[in-house]
């Protein structure tokens, strides 16, 4: 029976929060990330999903989105392009790139304590797939709400499946000072 310590869970949550702040807005945006209850439900239509894998664990990050006008305007602004230029493929590329930024940050910070680690490319799946998270046998599932400039709201879910006991700590105070995570 393997376990994820509370410190490690907080560390994963904190790293994903940092990734969301970096990946889902433009430079200078006010981005707030809050943790939602375990029974939170989401109305978005699709999910951009990415995976970070180590031989000790695997992490699935799901970013929920709907291809609506508000979301298009958000990504057009973030990518400094016109909404009119954002066709279906450009929109999917934008959400996938945002996912890459979010999970890339998580991957980079985790690599400092788990050197052997890899990250997948993103895929798009239906939001209704998240009804089956139990199938992933995760030791830690956390839902997040990310608000950008109090105008655009994203939701995300992080699922951690562990294959050994996981225990590490992140010094969040050091992050506030240097902008980089400190691992212990």
């Amino acid at each position: 029976m393997t376990t994820i310590s509370d410190n490690a869970k907080n560390g994963f949550d904190y790293m994903l929060t940092q990734g969301a702040k970096l990946g889902l807005g433009a430079s200078g945006d006010a981005i707030d990330v809050t943790i939602l209850p375990q029974d939170a439900e989401f109305a978005e239509a699709k999910i951009a999903i990415l995976t970070v894998s180590s031989y000790l664990f695997r992490i699935f990050v799901m970013i929920y989105f709907t291809q609506d006008q508000l979301t298009k305007e958000h990504f057009a602004r973030v990518n400094k392009t016109q909404v009119a230029d954002m066709d279906d493929q450009a929109f999917i590329d934008a959400i996938c790139e945002a996912g890459n930024m979010v999970v890339g940050t998580l991957n980079r910070e985790l690599a400092r304590i788990f050197p052997h680690i890899g990250m997948s490319t993103p895929n798009i799946i239906d939001r209704r797939c998240n009804r089956n998270l139990d199938a992933l046998h995760c030791g830690h599932i956390q839902h997040f709400e990310i608000t950008v400039n109090q105008a655009m709201t994203f939701h995300a879910t992080m699922c951690v499946s562990e294959y050994d006991d996981l225990n590490f700590s992140v010094d969040t105070a050091a992050v506030e000072d240097t902008g980089e995570l400190e691992m212990f």
């Binding site: 999903i49 990415l50 995976t51 970070v52 894998s53 895929n123 799946i125 089956n132 998270l133 199938a135």
Partner: peptide, 15 residues
Amino acid sequence: ENDLITTTTFQDLQA
């Protein structure tokens, strides 16, 4: 469920 398992499995393989 199949979509989720397939996608996560192959992403795990890729990562």
